[in-house]
Amino acid sequence: MTAQSNNDVIALHPADNIGVSRRNLLVNETIIIDGALIRIAEEIPVGHKVALGEISAGNKIIKYGASIGSATADIATGRHVHLHNMKSDYIASHTRDVVSH
């Protein structure tokens, strides 16, 4: 597994279409991954995922070189990839408000 990384975002595997932020990335910052310039489209908190290319709805999200789920919407380069635009192919994720009064 060869990791391509700079100080801002880690791409864990050459096949990955997302990178993991090493720090909080702000709107309009640019990062360089594997020689390519990517403009950050929205705030990406540390540890969260950013799209390294265009990802169409239904396509797999690849991290560690393996599928970690599918896009539920078209995702543009530089956007935050999370619960709002991808889902598990196994079992649904839940948040704290799943049980409330």
């Binding site: 932020s21 540890g47 393996a66 999370h82 991808m86 598990s88 192919d89 196994y90 079992i91």
Partner: peptide, 9 residues
């Protein structure tokens, strides 16, 4: 999820 993980896999 708050920490940036999205799915079980």
């Amino acid at each position: 999820a708050e920490g940036g993980l999205t799915t079980q896999e």
